[in-house]
Design a protein around this nucleic acid. Structure first.
Lengths: 152, 152
DNA sequence: CCATTTTATCATATTATCATGATGAACACA
DNA sequence: TGTGTTCATCATGATAATATGATAAAATGG
């Protein structure tokens, strides 16, 4: 449904929102926490930073952090950077020109479903996901912290 | 949402259901009608035949035709041959183990949407798509026939 | 049996996605 | 200034999806 790349981006952003700390997170820490390839994730994080979703800083005490309010950050803003979400409403049958005016046989039925998918990404914010996650992990949590001062 | 391959399969099957004729359709004719690569489509049609959705015959007067009642043929049966539809209900965040018991923060919201998508493929039949297509093309159709052979 | 028509299949090319390793460039601090 | 830390970027490889071209195998009709 979404590419591996977009999933890494989502998980990284959500992780940063969950662990809002004083210090930013390094790529290595994020890569380990998310079980994602380090340099690959680096490129993704960079793209998120360019898009204004994250902020990045180099050098000691550098790293990535959330640059916007998680409650004002719908998932679509993250996913759309990597996956063609608008085309997500493309024709199920792959017809180039499938529209309300010139619909394929599945158009009406599919449109309703596709709109639900689009709405999910548009209306769900990172804060929503974080809240749902916390709500559920009552008592089970244990999400290891991993971030010392300089980690040693 | 679905792979190119699955889209070709859907369109080919629907085309055959729409143009139910005396004579079967050759790969070349289908490829041209669908604007799909010939040999690639051939493999796809073969897979559909092996799965019992189509029947195939070689030699002169050979080709492909629908092997089952279009009204008894849900789209899932076609798509599932090429795309991992069951995993389509996988976690949006790409977490390996995301379930009702151990959900990610987006699980609840996403589950509802994913179920709608799955239901679309399960409950929509090829006959439904054909019917919707006809209903719409009142007066505009012009779907060029292209098949000399029998047709008439 | 032979020639023709068609599907079936194989070998290979192309492209996009996913990933790794090496190097460059900014930053902090002694 | 210099050294080490970190992000930024480049070059390359691995893999799967998509596609093409050539050939084999079945069917049909002479």
């Amino acid at each position: 449904m979404t590419s591996q790349t977009a999933e890494y981006a989502l998980r990284a952003t959500i992780f940063l929102a969950e662990h809002d700390a004083d210090a930013p997170f390094r790529v290595s820490d994020l890569a380990q926490a998310l079980a994602a390839p380090r340099n690959y994730l680096s490129k993704i994080l960079h793209a998120l930073a360019r898009a204004g979703v994250l902020s990045s800083a180099r050098g000691p005490a550098g790293g990535f952090r959330l640059a916007v309010d998680a409650a004002e950050l719908p998932l679509i803003r993250i996913v759309a950077l990597f996956d063609p979400v608008e085309e997500g409403r493309r024709c199920v049958l792959g017809r180039e020109k499938c529209s309300d005016a010139n619909p394929c046989g599945a158009h009406g039925r599919w449109k309703r479903v596709a709109e639900q998918v689009a709405a999910f990404f548009r209306t769900t914010t990172v804060a929503d996901v974080v809240a749902s996650g916390r709500e559920v992990s009552r008592g089970g949590g244990a999400e290891n912290g991993r971030r010392g001062g300089a980690a040693a």
